[in-house]
Simulated scan of single mutants.
Amino acid sequence: MTRERRRKPAEILPRAFRETYFSLFSGPEPETLHADLYRMLIDEGTDVIVQQLKEYNRRRRRLLSRIRGKIEVRRLKRDEKIAGLQVVASDAGNNGVDLRSAFIPLYASTALTAKGWNIIDEPIFRAGKPDVWADEFRTQQRESLLAFKIQCEVTEEAVERWDPDLVLIDGSLLLNFWLLPPPDSTKDYIRNFQEALLSSVGLLHYCYERGIPIVGFVKRTRINHICKKFRVPKLRDTALMDLILRLGEYTLPEDEPMKGRIVNSYRKKAEELGIPNREIVEFTSIYSSYIRTGLTTPFRLEIPEYCLDQLEKISTLIFTTSEEENGIPFSISEADRLTKVTTNISNIRTLMIYSKALDLVRKGEMNMHDLNLLALQHGEPWALNDGEYVSNLLGGEQVA
């Protein structure tokens, strides 16, 4: 037996590849931050931050006293009958891995239909296309684009199949402005953006044609439209609404719909599809409302113009079916649960790629040194610690 054969399987692997594997078994990274830096960041830095938050709170309370009564608020009552309307809800998740050689995207989407607190049919699932991106530098943005695209596609399929009374999208109805392609974008990024835009316009128009209201339930929002309107731009709307709305209350929509390059992109795409201008305005004019459905801060709703007359019914359904603790409606919560691509799932997928690459080495279709292609980008963390699984990967037949 040669010396190479006598070596342990792990020792045969390229160093970069071993570093990736061995990080699974290593303990937590030791705290090496210098004491002076720790003092500046943790002790002194937090003092400054708390003072800034104190001033932030003063600003929002001053604004509240100034605008009291200028924002119209409506009270909701839980209604079991409205809660029993049929809903289609959808969500998408993404969590790709950044290797030293390329980015491997991972994204998926789910749409389901529910009445009240019951899922009444098998959900529809859509997995993203397996791919390797070696030349994409806006990897997370492109992955988000594609996740949004398949979410729109699976939602439209669900609407066609189940003909619901309401469609709830987990997230915004429109593409986020930070996904707009900058001038130096790759051709693939621009193509994916146009595909996502087309899918989104198609979904909105399809719901419009069938007279089905569609609403975006935005859990994470940073906008400050209302605060900017009252000349306090350095204040998020959710911080203000936290003082205004009580449990079971919602605001009437702002006077003007959302504007900007994204909305213009939607209207231009709809015009290219030959959709009449009157229809374009009605389903691309998106209004915002805030609703407090639980003990958390309020959430933002996005509603197209053609659905505004049903806002009270929509808000009642969302409020009635929401858990008081987190404020998330049942259908959205279930879609999120079925779609969430966790770091553990991403790591398991990466380990499966490693396992199959090792099989190729054993078959002679790849060289052992080629496994460096699968080394994680420096600093890319593992959250999986399944030692037995990794040992099985490394402990098979020894390779010459």
Rank of each mutant, 00 (worst) to 15 (best):
E312K: 11
I353N: 04
L173S: 06
G364M: 02
E397A: 09
T320H: 06
G248M: 01
P257W: 03
A239F: 00
P14G: 03
F137G: 15
K313M: 12
P130C: 05
E397D: 12
L245T: 00
S172D: 07
R58C: 09
K149T: 08
N95S: 12
M258D: 05
S285T: 12
R191C: 01
T32M: 08
I286Y: 04
R3F: 15
P14A: 03
F177L: 02
I328K: 02
I280E: 02
W117F: 15
P105I: 01
A239C: 11
E143L: 04
G84D: 15
A114Y: 05
Y266S: 01
V87L: 15
R210L: 10
P276G: 07
H378M: 15
L376Q: 06
I119R: 14
L180V: 00
I262L: 02
D79S: 05
K187F: 07
I345Y: 10
V201E: 11
D131G: 03
R58K: 10
E271D: 09
M1Y: 05
I214L: 02
M368S: 04
R220M: 07
D359C: 11
N264G: 10
I42Q: 13
Y389N: 01
E312L: 13
A89R: 07
T297E: 12
E271N: 04
E365F: 05
L376V: 02
K340G: 00
P130S: 03
G128Y: 06
I244W: 04
L41I: 15
A239S: 13
L85Y: 14
F22T: 05
L308H: 03
D91H: 06
N347Q: 01
V50K: 15
I82V: 13
E323S: 14
H369E: 15
I280D: 01
A102Q: 12
T297M: 13
R278P: 06
T321N: 00
E4H: 09
T321G: 05
G274W: 00
Q51V: 03
R220T: 15
Q141N: 11
L243H: 03
P105T: 06
D79I: 09
M368N: 07
I275M: 13
P164R: 09
L106Q: 09
